[in-house]
Write a protein that binds this DNA or RNA. Sequence first.
DNA 1: TGACTTATTCTACATGTGTCGAATATATTC
DNA 2: GAATATATTCGACACATGTAGAATAAGTCA
Lengths: 138, 138
Amino acid sequence: MVNEKRNSKGKNETAFGELTEAEWAIMKVVWEHQPCAAGTVQDALATERGWAYSTVKTTMDRMVDKGLLKINKVRNLQLFSSQINRTQAAKGEFSKMLSRAFDGAIAPMVQFLVENENISEEHVKELRDIVSKTGRNK
Amino acid sequence: MVNEKRNSKGKNETAFGELTEAEWAIMKVVWEHQPCAAGTVQDALATERGWAYSTVKTTMDRMVDKGLLKINKVRNLQLFSSQINRTQAAKGEFSKMLSRAFDGAIAPMVQFLVENENISEEHVKELRDIVSKTGRNK
DNA sequence: TGACTTATTCTACATGTGTCGAATATATTC
DNA sequence: GAATATATTCGACACATGTAGAATAAGTCA
């Protein structure tokens, strides 16, 4: 039941690496501390989110069901580790955004970026630098 | 009740221009045909989605409640129009992606773009072109 | 060992979203 | 004007997600 995509008819297509808001918050902590216990994650998100332990634990258990996290049990302790890395998650998030908002085309997105206050002059410059500094890309 | 953001405690922050998957599909048709009837939208999405009329109508009514669409009644006909434009919607989608996957920083995102197969050589070129062709921005 | 401190399990509930069918109201057309 | 085609309104249901309390199991320490 790991990482399946139940789409019997427009249900929910769980594309590889699609995280919800809460999942992102948790995943970020896991990437940083894995393998780690639910309590550790809760502590890390204490101020930022103020979630109860059970909230964090429930969500993490659900993430295990989805194949996003895995558990390594040590005595009575459950140590969680991620099953996807940040790049994969970022890719999923980026792809979703791209297909929804720009019909999957990157050029329009960059156009949008440059035309909107969304991106500052410094960022335009960064973009320019990064893009030009990158020679042939694999 | 238009465009409010009920966030009494980590509830759901309906940021201006945050659309769900179904809403995006509908919104795209509306942007193209507005003002238009629900039936028109259904027809347009017939092959692509195969939604029943009521599915489309229900979703559109909910979008009206959220302030995403507005209705102009002509006799017994309801003509829908969007309350946000594509740029606003794109901005919302982009921002969400950026904060989730890149902690809100554009530079890392571009870096990611360049480093991943997510972006083909042609795209890198497009990127380069667009970025360099754009002189001082605003 | 008993008190105290975690962890884990289970159960639950509210709201959002995807999806419709049935009933009803309006038009259109012969 | 009756039959037919359209729209609108309502109510519903399933599943996902956010959020958490209560009960229980285990480990720690004086």
